Simulated scan of single mutants.
Amino acid sequence: MTTWKPTAPLQNLITRAQIINKVRNFFQQRQVLEVETPIISQFAATDPHLDSFRVNDHFLQTSPEFPMKRLVAAGSGPVFQICKVFRQDEAGRRHNPEFTMLEWYQPGYTDQQLWQEAIALISCITGAHPTQVISYRDAFISQLQVDPITSDISTLKKLCYEHTGAIADDFSREDCLDLLISMVIEPGFNPDEFTVLHRFPASQAALAKKTTDEDGEMVSHRFEIFFKGMELANGYWELTNTSEQEERFEADNQLRLKLGKQALPVDRLLLDALEAGLPDCAGIALGLDRLVMIACNSSNIKEVLSFSWENA
């Protein structure tokens, strides 16, 4: 007998539909345009930590980010999208290789303005809660008494072993930071507060602008939002410089090769859009399935999906 029945209880699917309606109402009230962009592209995200599904000579999207930025560059104004995205090797209690993402872009916004709007949206679903805003650097200093930007790598490797038992001899600096942030820092956030973690190290800027902090250290205008022990959203005050974006794509591909992965085709259409002029803007991606999990008090993403990866 096959497991043909839905993974989620009917009530969770009803709650899911209600949440999607609330999200649409939230943006309609703010005159943010709902858009659709292709889920299959000739280009792929070069992020070394993401692996795309191939469809012949194209790729299923890991995010609608690039085409949405092209819309903003073309004069769309603020836009949002609710869509399916796909990432290989992401299956578990909080991950499904096919999942639903809410993404939106606000021209003229800074990262701070955008995370405030994101908290307002999340509060519409979960109710209001206190908000803690803390920099990446201060989170490490508070919980581990170490500066993640200036400390030597031997100290970080030692902390990895002390707090997780990991033998970090071959770890890079970024490997150490990624392990500590996921295994130590994030679990230390108050689950009953919204936590905004911002000013990530410049090395983790991804597609965000870089800046200097009050001590003159390079950091990025990137932030993440956490609630109930889960990362819900990842946002940027967007990089608009074409040459710097191209350099970051090339650096990503070099790291992919170093990790034994294939280099991926760089999105020339996005670079052309940046060259034409992407307005100063901020953008954010929010995991809609995780937001539904919180609303349904579910501990497994399968409980909020009609059919999970295993019985799709």
Results as ranks from 00 to 15, higher is better:
residue 1 M to K: 11
residue 8 A to D: 01
residue 10 L to R: 11
residue 11 Q to D: 14
residue 15 T to A: 10
residue 16 R to L: 10
residue 19 I to T: 06
residue 22 K to C: 05
residue 23 V to P: 01
residue 23 V to R: 04
residue 24 R to Y: 02
residue 24 R to V: 06
residue 33 L to H: 00
residue 37 T to V: 15
residue 41 S to V: 01
residue 43 F to I: 04
residue 43 F to S: 15
residue 49 H to P: 00
residue 50 L to I: 15
residue 52 S to G: 02
residue 53 F to W: 04
residue 59 F to M: 02
residue 67 P to C: 08
residue 70 R to Q: 12
residue 85 V to K: 11
residue 85 V to D: 02
residue 86 F to V: 05
residue 88 Q to H: 10
residue 90 E to L: 02
residue 97 P to C: 03
residue 99 F to D: 06
residue 99 F to M: 08
residue 100 T to V: 14
residue 100 T to S: 14
residue 104 W to A: 02
residue 106 Q to K: 11
residue 106 Q to W: 09
residue 108 G to V: 12
residue 110 T to S: 15
residue 112 Q to L: 14
residue 113 Q to V: 03
residue 114 L to R: 11
residue 118 A to M: 14
residue 119 I to P: 00
residue 125 I to A: 01
residue 130 P to A: 13
residue 131 T to P: 00
residue 132 Q to Y: 02
residue 133 V to Q: 13
residue 137 R to F: 12
residue 141 I to K: 15
residue 142 S to I: 01
residue 142 S to T: 15
residue 145 Q to Y: 09
residue 147 D to G: 00
residue 148 P to D: 05
residue 150 T to F: 06
residue 156 L to R: 09
residue 159 L to D: 10
residue 160 C to I: 03
residue 160 C to W: 04
residue 161 Y to C: 14
residue 168 A to L: 04
residue 168 A to R: 05
residue 173 R to D: 01
residue 177 L to S: 10
residue 182 S to R: 13
residue 185 I to T: 07
residue 187 P to E: 05
residue 200 F to S: 01
residue 201 P to G: 08
residue 201 P to W: 12
residue 209 K to C: 11
residue 213 D to F: 09
residue 216 G to M: 13
residue 216 G to P: 05
residue 217 E to K: 09
residue 220 S to G: 06
residue 227 F to P: 07
residue 227 F to R: 11
residue 229 G to Q: 08
residue 231 E to T: 06
residue 234 N to L: 08
residue 239 L to Q: 14
residue 242 T to G: 03
residue 243 S to C: 03
residue 243 S to F: 03
residue 250 E to G: 00
residue 254 Q to L: 14
residue 256 R to F: 08
residue 257 L to K: 13
residue 263 A to D: 10
residue 265 P to G: 05
residue 266 V to C: 07
residue 266 V to H: 05
residue 267 D to W: 02
residue 269 L to E: 15
residue 269 L to N: 13
residue 270 L to C: 09
residue 270 L to G: 04
residue 278 L to V: 01
residue 278 L to E: 04
residue 283 G to V: 09
residue 285 A to G: 15
residue 288 L to C: 02
residue 291 L to G: 04
residue 292 V to L: 06
residue 295 A to M: 09
residue 299 S to G: 03
residue 303 E to V: 08
residue 304 V to A: 07
residue 310 E to N: 12
